[in-house]
Nucleic acid binder design. Structure first.
Length: 203
DNA sequence: GCCAGGATCGTCT
DNA sequence: GACGATCCTGGCG
């Protein structure tokens, strides 16, 4: 499987973008622009979950909850966490291979006033700096589970920033396979969900 | 500034 | 009946 060539900034991401290893898709999404309706921002933090990963919802096999993970790539997998927060993932890898990228943080760029109202916060750093926060700011709920990220209300465009440095480290908030360095961040970005540990490796 | 604890509910055992 | 891929608040220093 060969990696797609770099795309011009601002070009919509095609479905094939997601039809490769989740460990390629996760860092490639850093710097891409995600919009949902009138709101949006630049992706600055992601985490990869592959099918052989005990922390991945697909690890236990297909269920009614995780069936979207086993479907075609480029779809949104949205689920409820802690009974309160909707978390947004991008399904990756060819159909039948269940893997996904958790979108953990955005740098807000579009519809900031609307996001402030939805979040009840004013500071830009508090709008989308966490997986539960960004779904609230963007208005993403369970009803979008299974919809294509290449179609409305989603809009996903190629890397908006040039010369971005992506760093990786251990994932956050999980109890299984915590040692896997599958969290990816835009280096030095202040909109990530939390500062990364010292031992982060340059990727 | 840091940390402990509570909220809340769908999914799986 | 237990458990989260989380967030916010309040208490303490």
């Amino acid at each position: 499987m060969s990696a797609p060539a770099l795309r011009p900034a601002g070009e919509p991401l095609p479905t094939e973008f997601f039809a490769r290893s989740v460990h390629e898709v996760a860092p490639a999404l850093i710097g891409c622009e995600l919009r949902v309706g009138a709101t949006g921002g630049v992706i600055v933090e992601t985490e990869a979950y592959d099918a052989g990963d005990p922390a991945c919802h697909a690890y236990i096999g297909p269920t009614t909850r995780n069936e979207v993970l086993f479907g075609p790539p480029g779809r949104a997998y949205v689920y409820l966490s802690y009974g309160i927060h909707s978390l947004l993932n991008a399904v990756a890898e060819p159909e039948g291979s269940a893997a996904a990228v958790l979108i953990r943080a955005l740098e807000p760029t579009e519809g900031i006033e609307l996001m402030r109202r939805r979040r009840g916060r004013d500071r830009d750093e508090e709008l989308c700096s966490g997986p539960g926060k960004l779904t609230e700011a963007l208005g993403v709920g369970l009803e979008l589970n299974g919809t294509a990220l290449t179609e409305a209300p989603f809009e996903l465009r190629a890397r908006a920033w040039s010369g971005i440095e992506v760093v990786c480290g251990e994932r956050i908030g999980i109890t299984k396979a915590v040692e896997q360095p599958w969290r990816h961040c835009a280096a030095g970005n202040r909109f990530v969900s939390r500062p990364w540990p010292r031992d982060l490796l340059a990727a």
